[in-house]
């Protein structure tokens, strides 16, 4: 028998409504509120405890709330974590996402919640490793939402094969998995079917949907290039020969930064590409074709720019999900900003 714990807010914990939203985190043995119905739907999973926390407590004293709840879990046997369902309740949804993410990251166990698509918790947490099921607008859909969470939890603990997010009923996390359908047409047939439908102007369903584009405000220009520090960043996989950070040749989740202070160009004696998505010969022969340090140095010497930043940043941009790319971009951007870099040239292959 596996052990599970459910997190709910003060309202579903039957403590009270808005006036009790500051209710401090508490753990109770056994089933409270929605836990009873959840338990009925689960097979071979016992809900041992229910955690209750006021939405405002979690909202305004998040670190303390998370710390106390993680403290509750310290001595508990736990295989799977649940939170909600949160429907369209914004603070509750964010609370469920927050605690699921924390538990998932720290305890390395699956965490399942449910929210309506309008809940801000969805966008905040869907691209993490937690599962957010597509829930109803209000508690009127409590039973359906709990059933969906429980059905998936049962599959997880029984090690049953999992289907794509849309078929399981949770918000896609931007993760790609290879699956081998036991029956049905092979990939080559499916893609030609899609192409024929497209040519005929008929609707078709892609198997690799592109996430919606988010527009970024245009960053202000550099006022005085001659005093600016410029950094080089690449998705072209240029690394020192030994690839010290073991950046993957495809579907990268790691990036590296390498010292180029005092180098006039990127020497092929030191650098090469590990990118598996293009023919590496030209890049290996002259890595400046991908990361143009030689040209940027020339502009530094002429005084067109103030300085080339002392490190270049690199990863591999093939098969890399948008979620991973965004995370790596954020991590690199933070360092560049802290280093006082004024502008960035990012080269792609």
């Amino acid at each position: 028998m596996k052990k599970g714990i459910l997190y709910i807010n003060q309202f579903f914990g039957q403590i009270g409504g808005e006036e009790m939203a500051d209710y401090e985190p508490e753990i109770r043995e056994g089933l409270v509120g929605p836990a009873t119905f959840l338990q009925q739907q689960l097979k071979d999973i016992e809900i041992t405890h229910t955690i209750i926390c006021g939405d405002n407590f979690m909202g305004s004293r998040k670190e303390e709330a998370v710390q106390r709840i993680m403290g509750f879990l310290q001595d508990k046997e736990i295989d799977i974590f649940f939170a909600g369902p949160a429907f369209r309740a914004g603070r509750y949804g964010v609370a469920c996402g927050t605690i699921c993410h924390e538990v998932n990251q720290k305890l390395n166990i699956p965490a399942i919640t449910s929210m309506n698509e309008e809940n801000p918790g969805v966008e905040m947490f869907r691209y993490t490793d937690i599962y957010i099921f597509k829930g109803g607008k209000s508690a009127a859909q409590m039973k359906e939402d709990i059933k969906a969470m429980a059905r998936f939890a049962n599959k997880l603990v029984h090690g049953e094969p999992l289907l794509p997010a849309a078929e399981e009923g949770y918000f896609g996390r931007g993760k790609r998995h290879e699956i081998y359908p036991e029956d049905g047409p092979m990939a080559a047939d499916r893609v030609v079917d899609m192409l024929l439908k497209k040519l005929r102007g008929e609707p078709f369903q892609t198997e690799l949907p592109m996430p919606k584009t988010e527009r970024i405000p245009i960053a202000p220009p550099i006022k005085d290039l001659s005093r600016a520090t410029i950094a080089l960043v690449t998705s072209g996989g240029i690394v020192p020969h030994e690839n010290p950070d073991r950046i993957q040749s495809a579907s990268a989740t790691r990036w590296g930064k390498y010292d180029i202070a005092g180098m006039d160009s990127l020497s092929p004696e030191i650098f090469k590409t590990i990118h598996a998505g293009y023919d590496p010969n030209a890049a290996n022969e002259d890595p400046n074709r991908v990361v143009p340090l030689d040209a940027l140095r020339a502009y530094e010497k002429e005084g067109k720019i103030g300085k080339v930043y002392d490190y270049f940043y690199t990863t591999v941009g093939t098969g890399t999900t948008q979620g991973e790319a965004a995370r790596m971009g954020r991590e690199i951007a933070r360092e560049l900003l802290e280093a006082g870099v004024d502008g960035v040239i990012l080269t792609s292959t």
Partner: peptide, 24 residues
């Protein structure tokens, strides 16, 4: 990555061959 860098307010230029993808 370009967008995450630009989000911080740092100007960034993308040098790439697949211009339509970068635009999209």
């Amino acid at each position: 990555m370009v967008k995450e860098i630009e989000k911080t307010g740092l100007p960034v230029v993308h040098m790439c061959n697949l211009v339509p993808i970068s635009l999209t």
